[in-house]
Design a protein around this nucleic acid. Structure first.
Length: 472
DNA sequence: AGCACA
């Protein structure tokens, strides 16, 4: 039964629909490969840049006879198979199909993900990007953003063919020097396909454009960028207030879930939406209130405080530039409390429903593969980046208040749990420590937040503390 | 110039 003991000698290779090609030129493109092989039949799949030297490739024909015809042709031809002047050696592959391990970025679509290497966001304007990519067809929308990978842009074309033409022509190339500021050396473009079909552009700004919708409101704040930050009376930069808070969570020893945040921030008013994401390796969250006043109250009370005792999960709060988050309603990283919660409906039915909110019928399978929000429940800041920015103002966190090292509600905790070193969500109560911060209003829905969602998480160990007690 | 990926 063992196939591994079969002879693999070159002259006894059995024909296969898949051909193995070697000695290809450097960075041989799929197009070049197809040009060489298509006279012999219909190509169903290819794989380029294979092997340590990336100079091998595979081609799969739809029919075995087509592969045979190509091998026999070059076996008897006086002219060898050539690509870019290099002789290409062709033989049957020892496999019978190409396993398509194309990464998502290689699956063609009408939206390109462009990484502009070696530049900062301010170096390449959206107009330059538009100019460069318009050479290949009508650019519908552009969204730019900065992530760990660098300065990136999503560029939406009419169709995959146009996008593909732009990618083939520009991938690995640089934006012409005369379109760049003098201090920028080279800036190579790395281009892959985005899974997105239609970008969700909210404003015309210096970071995003929708060329199909001239009626779209202009976000002047975003356009004017950083000069917009006002100067406070103390001379410090003062970010414009917002109804949306950006929470940066430091010393994340324990899991900080949407439910935990909801519990904490609901102490000050209705929390409309929450989104948790990673930025530069740090966990951050956006918390949306209905109005600026509530957000300001929450910011004032919570800044510098820790969610858990012992200095864990310390909150730094600033105002986001967002005013309305666009988040998936029920995912593990985001919640929109303004839409009906199916788990609440479920809770009124089966008695066990509340114990495991994850089991409640939420989004399973209902998200289309190419929804503008990321499949799989992840909240992807890059998508949201069609809006101005995620960081309201990096580095402008205020110095910690005198209470900064004390846990939230430390002074107001009637239970004394704070002294135990136990994370508070192990014992969250409707009026528990986290919710008793001075100035808070008791608006938390007890059945929903405290019992239904937070406690089960604690039981499952998602945020269980290590055993040590710091006061032992 | 000699077989991918998991």
């Amino acid at each position: 039964m063992s196939t591994s003991s079969q002879h693999q000698f070159r002259y006894t290779q059995t024909p296969s629909k898949v051909l193995h090609l070697r000695n290809l030129p450097w960075e041989c493109s799929e197009e070049e490969l197809r040009e060489l092989c298509k006279p012999f039949g219909k190509i169903v799949n290819t794989k380029c840049n294979v092997g340590a030297n990336r100079n091998q490739a595979f081609v799969e024909f739809v029919d075995l006879n087509q592969a045979i015809s190509m091998v026999s042709y070059y076996a008897s031809s006086s002219e060898p198979a050539m690509v870019r002047g290099k002789t290409v050696y062709i033989q049957y592959s020892n496999r019978h199909e190409i396993v398509n391990n194309k990464s998502p970025g290689d699956i063609p679509g009408n939206v390109l993900l462009v990484t502009i290497e070696g530049v900062e966001a301010g170096d390449v304007s959206i107009d330059v990007i538009h100019l460069v990519f318009s050479a290949f067809g009508f650019v519908h929308k552009i969204a730019t953003f900065e992530k760990t990978a660098g300065f990136q842009a999503l560029i939406q074309f009419t169709d995959a063919e146009t996008a593909s033409a732009a990618r083939d022509a520009l991938d690995g190339r640089s934006i012409p020097r005369y379109l760049l500021p003098a201090h920028v050396g080279s800036c190579n473009l790395r281009i892959s396909y985005s899974a997105h079909k239609d970008l969700n552009i909210k404003f015309q700004s210096n970071r995003s454009r929708d060329y199909t919708n001239p009626m779209l409101p202009v976000n002047y704040t975003a356009i004017e960028g950083t000069v917009q930050t006002a100067i406070g009376p103390d001379g410090k930069r003062k970010e414009p207030e917002s109804n949306v808070l950006l929470a940066s969570i430091e010393n994340m020893q324990y899991a900080v879930t949407v439910d935990v945040l909801h519990t904490v921030f609901s102490a000050f008013g209705t929390v409309q939406k929450i989104a948790i994401f990673e930025k530069n390796g740090q966990t951050q969250a956006l918390i949306q209130y209905p109005d600026v006043m509530t957000a300001a109250a929450a910011r004032e009370a919570l800044e510098g405080h820790c969610i858990y005792d012992g200095g864990y999960c310390k909150l730094h709060l600033s105002y986001s530039r967002h005013t309305d988050l666009n988040v998936k309603a029920f995912s593990d990283k985001s919640r929109d409390y303004t839409v009906p919660d199916p788990s609440l409906v479920a809770a009124q039915g089966p008695a066990t429903a509340w114990q495991n909110p994850q089991a409640a019928p939420m989004y399973h399978g209902s998200a289309p593969a190419y929804h503008t929000q990321v499949p799989g429940g992840q909240w992807d800041p890059s998508l949201q980046a069609v809006r101005p920015s995620y960081i309201s103002a990096p580095g402008t966190f205020q110095a910690s208040s005198p209470l900064a090292s004390s846990p939230i509600g430390h002074n107001a905790n009637p239970t004394g749990i704070a002294q135990s070193g136990v994370p508070r969500n192990v014992n969250l109560q409707p009026s528990g420590a986290l919710l008793s911060v001075p100035g808070s209003s008791p608006l938390v829905q007890t059945s929903q937040a405290a019992q239904g969602l937070v406690q089960p998480n604690a039981r499952t160990g998602a945020a269980s503390p290590p055993g040590q007690h710091y006061y032992a």
